Deep mutational scan, measured.
Amino acid sequence: MEVRTIKVFTTVDNINLHTQVVDMSMTYGQQFGPTYLDGADVTKIKPHNSHEGKTFYVLPNDDTLRVEAFEYYHTTDPSFLGRYMSALNHTKKWKYPQVNGLTSIKWADNNCYLATALLTLQQIELKFNPPALQDAYYRARAGEAANFCALILAYCNKTVGELGDVRETMSYLFQHANLDSCKRVLNVVCKTCGQQQTTLKGVEAVMYMGTLSYEQFKKGVQIPCTCGKQATKYLVQQESPFVMMSAPPAQYELKHGTFTCASEYTGNYQCGHYKHITSKETLYCIDGALLTKSSEYKGPITDVFYKENSYTTTIK
C-alpha cells in the first residue's frame, strides 16, 4: 500500500517557510505537534488534498525554529505562539472599519479597549522592536488589523473576551517599542525636605499616572512627601515624541487643539466601556464603527496623549 502524501510549508514567522512532505494517514499533531492554519487549530486533523502548498504555523520545537521565533517575536515564552494563534482565530472574524481616516474595530468580545489602543497607536510616533509587531502594525494602518490585535493580546497575556485596560495595554506595548531616546527629568520640591531631581528613561519617561493635564504637570502637581507634608512635583525636561497622561476616570474637559487623542471610560472596574476622542479640525468621538463630532467635550476621561518633541522648564 502506497503512502499518500502532500507537500506543505511549516513556519513560526510566515517569513521562513520549511518544506514538509506530510503523510495523509496521520494527523498534523502526530507529525508536527500543535499546528495552526489561519489561526485555526488543526492539530487533530489529517492532511487533505486542499492543504497542498498551504502554510501551517507550528510551535518552535527545534533550534532553527526557536531562533526564527525569537528573532521575529522577541520572546522565548513557549506558550506565546499558541496564544497568538488562538487569538487570531477570533480577531480574523472582527470587522476593521476605516473611521475618520483611522483603522478602528467594530465592537465584539469586549474589544473596546483594543480599538482605543489601536486608534491611539496610529496617532503617536512609535516604532516597535519585534519585527512581528512592526509588520502587523503597518498592515493594521492599511486596514488589516487582525494579526496586530492578536499579537497585542498575546504580548499582554490576554484572551479574547476578557476586559482590558488601555493604560495597561499601552504599557505592555511600550515595553516592546523603541523608547531608548526618551528621557524625563522631574523635580520634587518640599518646604521641609528641599528639592530632589529624578531622571527617568524609556517607558517611565512617557507615562504618568495622577493627572490628565500635561500643562498642569509642567506647572506642578501636589504629591505627598515622605515627611508627610505636601510637596510639588513638576516637569523639568521632556525628550520624547509623545507623552501619555493618565488618571482614574473623572469628568474632564478636553479643549480642541490642546491634545492629540484621549480615552474615555464609562462604567466601573468590573464592567465598563471605552471610547476614543481625537482632536482634528474639530473633536471626534470614535466608538467602534461609530463616529460623532463636537466642538467641545466633557466626560469621564482616563488617558490623554500629547505630541511632544523637546521641553525644558522655565521655572527657576
Rank of each mutant, 00 (worst) to 15 (best):
S246C: 06
S86E: 06
K307G: 11
L17R: 10
T266S: 12
I301F: 03
V3T: 12
L17Q: 09
N61E: 12
Y297H: 15
V3Y: 13
P249L: 03
E168S: 13
H90T: 14
G210L: 07
K44L: 10
T292D: 10
P241L: 04
N129E: 15
E2N: 10
G101I: 00
L151T: 01
E144I: 03
S181R: 12
Y96D: 02
C271P: 11
L65E: 08
G288M: 02
T282D: 11
L283D: 07
I15G: 01
Y297M: 04
P300F: 12
P131S: 02
V185N: 04
G228D: 06
G33Q: 01
C285R: 07
L133G: 00
K298S: 11
L59V: 12
H48F: 09
A146P: 03
L81I: 08
T211I: 08
T91N: 00
Q237F: 13
V99L: 11
Y72T: 09
R184I: 10
T169A: 11
I286T: 02
Y172C: 07
E52S: 11
R4K: 13
L126T: 07
A154C: 05
S246Y: 03
Q195R: 13
H74E: 09
K46I: 13
Y155M: 00
T169I: 15
Q196S: 14
T43H: 12
F259L: 05
T120M: 15
G143T: 01
C149G: 03
C225D: 00
Y172D: 14
F70W: 10
K219S: 13
D41F: 02
I152M: 13
N157H: 14
T5A: 13
Y269Q: 15
S181D: 10
N100F: 06
S25K: 15
S279V: 01
K92G: 05
Q175Y: 15
A154Y: 00
Y36T: 01
I124P: 02
G82K: 15
G267D: 13
Y84C: 00
K298L: 09
P248T: 09
K127W: 05
A117P: 04
S295R: 13
Q98H: 12
N16L: 12
F242Y: 04
H18G: 05
W94N: 00
F217N: 04
F174L: 11
Y96G: 02
N110F: 01
A108W: 06
L37V: 08
A231M: 08
I223V: 15
L114K: 01
K93P: 12
S310C: 11
T27I: 14
T198V: 09
Q30H: 13
T302L: 05
D109A: 09
Q251V: 12
Y269F: 13
N268K: 12
D135V: 09
R4C: 11
N100Q: 08
Y113S: 02
K191Q: 11
Q122I: 01
F128P: 01
M26Y: 13
L163D: 09
T312V: 14
V21R: 13
A115N: 08
G101Y: 04
C193W: 00
D77Y: 02
G228F: 02
T76P: 14
Y84S: 03
Q20D: 08
H51D: 12
I223R: 05
F217M: 13
S181E: 13
F217S: 05
K93C: 07
V99M: 10
V99F: 12
Y234I: 10
C225H: 11
L118H: 00
G228S: 04
L153C: 04
T43G: 13
T260W: 09
D135P: 00
V21Y: 11
S181N: 11
K44M: 09
P34T: 13
T103F: 10
Y265L: 14
Q195D: 10
S104K: 01
Y252M: 12
F9R: 07
K46G: 06
Q251D: 04
Q175N: 04
Y113L: 00
Y172F: 11
I45M: 11
T116M: 05
T302H: 06
M245H: 00
L114A: 04
M244G: 06
S86Q: 15
G220T: 03
Y96T: 02
A140G: 01
L59P: 08
C182F: 07
S104P: 04
V160E: 01
A87S: 09
N14H: 07
C193I: 05
H273E: 04
K201C: 06
M26L: 14
P241Q: 10
F128K: 01
K280C: 08
P47F: 02
D38N: 11
Y73D: 02
I6A: 04
T232E: 08
Q175C: 06
M209E: 13
A69N: 08
G39S: 13
A250D: 09
V160Y: 01
Y252K: 05
H176V: 03
T232R: 11
C227V: 02
I6S: 09
H51E: 08
N147D: 12
K106D: 02
V67T: 12
V8C: 09
K191V: 08
T76D: 10
E68P: 06
Y269T: 12
E296R: 14
I286W: 05
V99K: 01
C190S: 02
Y84T: 01
T19L: 13
R141V: 14
A136D: 00
Y311E: 05
S104N: 00
A132D: 00
T260G: 07
K201I: 11
M207I: 07
S25Y: 11
H276I: 01
Y306C: 07
P60V: 07
G288D: 05
K54V: 10
M209R: 14
Y96K: 01
N268H: 10
T282H: 10
Y96R: 00
I277W: 14
R167W: 15
E71V: 11
L114H: 04
L153H: 03
S240F: 04
V22F: 02
I315C: 12
E125Q: 15
N309V: 12
T282Y: 12
T27P: 13
I286L: 05
R139M: 09
F128R: 01
Q222L: 14
S213N: 15
K46E: 15
F174Q: 01
